[in-house]
């Protein structure tokens, strides 16, 4: 095998592929004539390339064109079906807004109905009790110091604070 640089090898292959210009071709041919190793290299590369002719020749199926056209038709059909099903982008937003409004309205009505029908039954009674005991609540701070009802009644007795109801000065 000839000792060739990468560039020389590239030129040798390009020469075999008729890709070298006239001057480069003549120069390389002169070298090949003088160098038996290079001649052998050329011959080996040629034979290797020729071996590719032994690769099997694939035969496409006879229905290839028909199947391709069928696929194309299906593809076109699919596009039409898609277009029929999918709404245009511009018409999507009004529909979405209508749905959102309907959901909000339903939620509002639901809340109002629930409030009307399921309000706690004693909410009115609590207000009445609050009004009835308003005086007690107003004096609640003072009542907090009272331990029991007897003590409160005892406070009402006039003699408790040294008052003599029968005596006079």
């Amino acid at each position: 095998m000839a000792n060739l640089s990468d560039e020389e090898r590239e030129n040798l292959v390009a020469y075999l592929d008729n890709e070298l210009d006239e001057a480069a071709t003549q120069e390389l041919e002169a070298r090949i004539n003088l160098d038996p190793d290079l001649r052998k290299e050329v011959e080996t590369l040629k034979q290797t390339w020729g071996l590719l002719d032994f690769l099997p020749k694939p035969q496409p199926s006879p229905s290839f064109t028909h199947r391709t056209m069928e696929r194309l038709s299906l593809e076109k059909l699919g596009r039409v079906v898609d277009t029929g099903k999918m709404p245009a982008a511009a018409s999507v937003w009004p529909r979405r807004l209508a749905w959102a409004a309907a959901v909000l309205l339903t939620a509002g009505l639901g809340y109002a109905a629930a409030h009307y029908f399921f309000a706690p039954p004693d909410s009115l009674g609590q207000d009445e009790a609050l009004v009835r005991h308003l005086r007690v609540l107003e004096n609640w701070r003072q009542y907090e110091h009272v331990d029991d009802l007897d003590f409160l009644r005892a406070l009402d007795a006039p003699e408790l604070f040294g008052e003599d109801t029968g005596a006079s000065d």
């Binding site: 075999l16 034979q47 390339w49 020729g50 590719l52 002719d53």
Partner: peptide, 18 residues
């Protein structure tokens, strides 16, 4: 190993690549 194999293009006249 196949370049000089019997039946290869170089031996049986199969077309050369170049």
């Amino acid at each position: 190993d196949y370049i000089y194999m019997e039946g290869a293009p170089s031996d049986n006249g199969a077309p050369e690549g170049n």
